[in-house]
Simulated scan of single mutants.
Amino acid sequence: MSGALVPAQRGEPTPPAHHRSSWADHCARLARSRPFEIVIVVVILANGVVLGLETYDDLLPAGGALHWLELFFRAVFVVEIAVRLAAYGKRPQDFFRHGWNVFDFVAIAAIFIPGLHGDPALLRVVRVARMVRLVRFSPGLRTIVSALWRSLPGVGGFLALAVVTLYVYGMAGWLIFGSTYPEEYGDIGRSLLTLFVLLSLETLPGLIEQGLAISPWTLLYYVSYVIITVNLLLNILIAVIVNSMEEARRLEMTERLAPGYDEDGDGVPDEVDRIALTQRLDDLRAVVAALERELRIDREDGYGRPHREGTRTGR
């Protein structure tokens, strides 16, 4: 197991030993190293800074230097992908089994599509997509993105409920305020837009004042809307996302416990490390217990009172 190395990104499957060569081991070790990740993160951040500088018209004279920097960034990213692909040895197709690897490859390869160079706006979007690659280098960000992805089914149900609720209140608002305040409730579209803006609660005082000018009962309309939508529905959305984050954390911990996972890169799967550590701790406890019996050291019970494990005879 001395040659079992994990490729660049934590959580990726480990290539079988018989599919790797010494060159693949070197590439895996390089891609796994912390300095390599730091260099890539710095280059991604520098790429974002250059993209921001290109938006200033005053820096047009420096366009040549920025262009060369862009070529440098492309070269670094291509080398990065090549190293991580080479880490899989004779099975480079396994590289594409990991979602983040596929995203990285597409984000880097898309820049070389000839048709993109005729559309500067689309080309800039592809280049901006590189910034998203920062997520893969942060376990916390990866957990959040995974949680958002897993929450999509729940969010879809929430959106359906929110649309129905807004539509019902929109129709009610059109019936109550449509003739008096046509700018806010003149039709269902304006009514829905007014209620959507009301989710921020910034326009609530003005709308309540307008409603009270018609009837005090309009207060019930706004109070019920705020309670149901702003408080109840938004709290449901937060609960869905939080639940998805907990599931994403449990899934990540399960992957860490999977056989063959080697986060420390010592060539020994973490599961084997954990078993070995447990055995050593058990041996250490046995040694300490033997020393206590030999030295006749009394242990303390849960209340801090000393007691003896057995009763000595003859006393």
Score class of each variant (00 low, 15 high):
residue 252 E to L: 09
residue 298 D to C: 00
residue 125 V to C: 04
residue 236 I to L: 13
residue 115 G to E: 02
residue 189 G to A: 10
residue 116 L to R: 05
residue 166 L to A: 14
residue 124 R to I: 13
residue 253 M to W: 12
residue 213 A to C: 05
residue 66 L to D: 00
residue 49 V to Q: 02
residue 2 S to A: 15
residue 156 G to V: 08
residue 296 R to N: 07
residue 57 D to C: 01
residue 202 E to D: 15
residue 228 I to M: 05
residue 203 T to L: 14
residue 99 G to S: 11
residue 12 E to L: 12
residue 36 F to D: 01
residue 147 A to F: 15
residue 58 D to I: 12
residue 206 G to I: 05
residue 287 V to W: 11
residue 277 L to P: 04
residue 190 R to D: 11
residue 103 F to D: 08
residue 152 L to Q: 13
residue 226 V to F: 13
residue 62 A to G: 03
residue 40 I to P: 13
residue 30 L to I: 14
residue 5 L to N: 09
residue 159 L to M: 12
residue 146 S to W: 07
residue 153 P to K: 00
residue 196 F to V: 15
residue 228 I to T: 09
residue 141 L to D: 02
residue 56 Y to L: 14
residue 144 I to A: 08
residue 278 T to K: 05
residue 213 A to H: 04
residue 262 D to K: 03
residue 254 T to K: 01
residue 246 E to Q: 11
residue 52 G to C: 11
residue 50 V to R: 04
residue 77 F to M: 15
residue 107 A to R: 02
residue 65 A to P: 03
residue 260 G to C: 07
residue 242 V to E: 09
residue 153 P to A: 03
residue 210 Q to R: 11
residue 237 L to E: 07
residue 100 W to R: 04
residue 5 L to Y: 15
residue 91 R to A: 15
residue 25 D to R: 10
residue 93 Q to K: 00
residue 220 L to F: 09
residue 78 V to Y: 00
residue 134 L to I: 14
residue 313 T to I: 06
residue 25 D to F: 08
residue 295 L to E: 02
residue 176 I to H: 03
residue 261 Y to K: 00
residue 280 R to P: 00
residue 129 A to C: 09
residue 94 D to N: 13
residue 60 L to G: 02
residue 47 N to V: 05
residue 44 I to F: 10
residue 279 Q to V: 07
residue 154 G to T: 04
residue 103 F to V: 15
residue 185 Y to K: 00
residue 262 D to E: 03
residue 297 I to T: 11
residue 299 R to L: 10
residue 30 L to K: 05
residue 38 I to L: 09
residue 45 L to S: 08
residue 82 A to M: 03
residue 188 I to M: 14
residue 161 L to H: 03
residue 136 R to F: 06
residue 191 S to K: 01
residue 230 V to M: 01
residue 38 I to F: 07
residue 295 L to K: 06
residue 51 L to K: 00
residue 133 R to D: 14
residue 293 R to S: 04
residue 224 S to E: 00
residue 8 A to I: 05
residue 126 V to Q: 09
residue 147 A to H: 06
residue 96 F to D: 06
residue 178 G to M: 12
residue 46 A to R: 00
residue 195 L to N: 07
residue 301 D to R: 00
residue 108 I to K: 03
residue 308 R to I: 02
residue 39 V to M: 15
residue 157 G to P: 02
residue 35 P to S: 10
residue 121 A to L: 13
residue 228 I to E: 06
residue 242 V to I: 09
residue 240 V to A: 06
residue 18 H to K: 02
residue 42 V to T: 03
residue 81 I to V: 11
residue 231 N to L: 13
residue 286 A to M: 02
residue 97 R to A: 13
residue 103 F to I: 14
residue 2 S to K: 13
residue 313 T to F: 07
residue 131 M to F: 15
residue 228 I to V: 08
residue 225 Y to L: 04
residue 209 E to K: 08
residue 298 D to E: 12
residue 27 C to F: 12
residue 150 R to W: 01
residue 76 V to E: 11
residue 289 A to M: 12
residue 288 V to W: 10
residue 8 A to D: 14
residue 131 M to W: 15
residue 192 L to C: 14
residue 71 L to Y: 13
residue 254 T to W: 02
residue 168 V to W: 11
residue 85 L to I: 13
residue 5 L to G: 11
residue 293 R to C: 00
residue 166 L to N: 12
residue 179 S to F: 13
residue 290 A to Q: 15
residue 217 W to H: 01
